[in-house]
Design a protein around this nucleic acid. Sequence first.
RNA 1: GCCGUUGUAGCUCAGUCUGGUGGAGCAAUCGGCUGUUAACCGAUCGGUCGUAGGUUCAAAUCCUACCAGCGGCGCCA
Length: 431
Amino acid sequence: MPKQTFIYASKVTPSEETIKLRGWVYRIRKMKDKIFVILRDASGIIQCIGSKNQLTSEAWNMLNEAAIENYITVEGNPVEDNRAINNVEVKLTNFTIMHKGEIFPIAKDQSKEFMLDNTHLFVRSYKATNVWKVKASVLRSAREWFFENDFYETTPPILTGSACEGGSTLFSLKYFDHTAYLSQSIQLYLEALIYSLEKVYAITPSFRAEKMRTKRHVNEFWHIEGEEAFVDFEGNMKIQEELVAYIVQYVLKHNAKEFKELKRDTSVLETIKAPFNKISYKEAIDTLNENGFNLKWDEDMKTEEERALSTIIGEPFFIRDYPSSHKPFYVKLHEDDPKWCYSADLMAPEGFGELITGGQREDVLDTLIRRIKEEGWEVEDYAWYIDLRKYGSVPHSGFGLGAERLTWWLCGLDAIQETLPFPRTRNRVYP
RNA sequence: GCCGUUGUAGCUCAGUCUGGUGGAGCAAUCGGCUGUUAACCGAUCGGUCGUAGGUUCAAAUCCUACCAGCGGCGCCA
């Protein structure tokens, strides 16, 4: 038999055996002859009780010195007790402080500002840990879905030499003797890769140098992007809704404990299944106008309106067929009426708003060149991208899903910043 | 970039309107303690009131400038 190893707090069940655990002091409550210490590890927390008359004086003294976030190891007997969390506690037979360290600065009350100054310590908080677990499930289940649907994972570059979608929101940096940019989206590269693998995806960080400060934005986020050859606008939406529905089902199955601890009411999530509602941009405007707004058909929907619509509809839905003037040059236009284009946004319910933008790409060489010129870009800057339409151009579509947007909604958090361990915002690039 | 708002003890805040010797809770330290659930009780410790200048007999408080943070909007995932 191998030497007895440490077990996770969540695996502790009442038994006759002596067990060992290691982790950090989450809470500690000291009395004259008894001390309760709550041990925290990656799996959760468990109450341990140390009694003066059942410990060596050395262990008892150490227990008396223990403080929040000390690294500790414990030995004891797991017993059933309805006064403890999860009705199990460990009656200590030994207790060791492995690293005492200094006084942990994060206490009961924290302001947002203090929390952000101490993000490197705040990541270990109970709430944050639950969010990291849900996010891990989002990424894992997305990969699973792609794998099961014959998509190849690819690794496009994050450093790019050309500015796609305009330069104002790009972070630039010195690249030897040139200027390079941090990627806003690897879409154009995925479009190149479909000619090889047909169905591709990538999960990469995307950077936006927007100077906005909102609950919905961070300057660095993880982008789940897919691109598919021979798939049209309708087929693309089908892929998106199946992917999102799969992720929702996965987290409901695997993260019930986390949702409970985050106090997330999952009843809305439980009803979600593909296909989703689809309304045209025009219908969206009409719906809003019926609900007290006064918008014209080609007017841009603002956050307030999108949020209202998302609350009215109450389940995930697509807004499809946007006015062409609202969307970039690579979006394919309707053949019969170029006023509209094959672009759709997937909206989360409950007022969380946009999760995905996707659509069919312009695959006709001349139209693409004309559109680039109309938007005022230099055709030479997109030479390699235009090349893709010269050699066996195929109809294709794709989309970009924000991993943080999705996690934010699934967990029902106040702000998207909470879904990243080290959120990059306008005034925060440290720690 | 625009609008708003905040800066007082290690942390969370009151005190600013109406100028007159800086307060509370938490943390820490010491002591007490009935199986506690961010325990409880008592005591102690702890501050260049964001920075600079101005008004005044007197400024955390009024005025000016600056700095930093936070919230929102345009944008978007």
